[in-house]
Amino acid sequence: MSHKVLHICLSSGWGGLEMYPSRIIPELARQGWQAHGLALAGSRVAESFREAGVEPLTLASKGRALLAVGRVLAYLRAHEVEVIHCHKSSDLRLGALLATLRPSLRLFFTDHMGVTRPKKDPYHRWAYGKVARLFSISEATRQRNLAAFPLPAERIRRLYLGIDPAPYAPCLDDEARAALRRELGVPEGAVAIGLPGRLTPGKGQEVWIEALARLAAMNPDLAWHGVLIGGLTVGEGSDEAHVAALRRRIDELGLASRIAFTGFRRDLPRLFEALDIVCVPSRNEAFGLTVIEAMAAGKTVIGSDSGAIPELLDAETGRLAAPEDAAAWAAALAELAGDDDLRQRLGQAARHRVERDFTLAAHAASLVEEYENLQGAEGA
């Protein structure tokens, strides 16, 4: 049985979906599987494959992918690859065609985004009919997938994402942590309240800013500092018009001296060490990778009570607030900002939850089990 898989991600963007294949490749290798990659030439995805130690097969454009089917089939034969795994619904056209032309291939698909409309027309029945297993990254998305996709329930499986908790474990000494807080503009003794993620509509930065304004009015003597972590340009994955609107609103509320923009940072695990509270006010997260990253860092997290985030957080590990309710966010911030012991207890419980339920090793083990079981079923 071949223990080789081709991950297909023909995207020119860069977000959690695009990062997934390169994140999983080293763990797959540790569990005995050799990964291959198919990406667009010159894309950040192709670069990430190389950074993970895999030289990808590349295509000039997504629009010409179907014309390259012969080349891809030849690559699969030459490398004895029997498993293909797609990560964008648009890539299923190629994946399903490959599985049609070579029926021994096993096709997997991960729905990273959460489907928003039914996909039961003839094309989707054909394409998804070639999928051996569809992975939903949360129970919230699985329920939508069951209703939207033309697949029997037993072929749709919830498979939570995972991370390696080790890089998120605190490692800065007091002096280094204090220096990092100063770099972020956090005054000594202030509660650092962070919001990491792409600065785009839907991620909840607006309600967070309004909540901080309410917090300032409710608790005028409380020292706090807001930290917005994320790229500021299109090239860094953000919406520049949205960034400009956020800056205007911060100025209107008189909070310019109390909220800092960090820009794109590669040191998120260390930035978590500089924060006291992490906020994830996204309106409809399909999973919430940032939530479990902050939890792994032992941080107290406030998340939206919508999408998949309530599957990750509960009253023992953090707090939830309605994504459009600035007053609820302000109340949660006030509770946590004023209680160091509570933040510590919640943070410790959150880290234990990640170690128990959301590790990359456990995720990859489940993935490998699916790859191997379905290969075995095909060969039986």
Score class of each variant (00 low, 15 high):
28 L>G: 03
48 S>T: 02
26 P>T: 05
109 F>C: 02
235 G>A: 13
130 K>Y: 02
254 G>W: 12
70 G>M: 05
149 F>V: 04
110 T>N: 10
154 E>F: 06
312 L>G: 12
314 D>P: 01
245 A>C: 01
77 R>H: 10
379 G>S: 13
190 A>E: 03
8 I>M: 14
10 L>N: 06
362 A>K: 13
152 P>V: 13
46 A>H: 08
343 R>Y: 10
127 A>E: 05
65 A>K: 14
267 D>P: 09
308 A>R: 00
76 L>V: 07
153 A>R: 14
77 R>D: 14
155 R>G: 02
5 V>H: 01
326 A>R: 08
255 L>K: 02
296 A>I: 11
216 A>K: 15
219 N>A: 15
264 F>G: 00
28 L>D: 00
6 L>F: 01
258 R>V: 04
267 D>G: 11
51 E>A: 15
209 I>H: 02
298 G>P: 04
140 A>V: 07
213 A>C: 06
89 S>D: 12
21 P>C: 11
319 R>T: 01
365 A>S: 13
312 L>F: 10
43 S>M: 09
1 M>K: 01
363 H>C: 09
362 A>N: 10
253 L>G: 06
342 L>R: 15
321 A>I: 00
370 E>C: 12
339 D>K: 06
230 G>E: 05
98 L>G: 03
163 I>H: 06
170 P>R: 07
344 Q>A: 15
76 L>D: 07
94 L>S: 07
206 E>F: 04
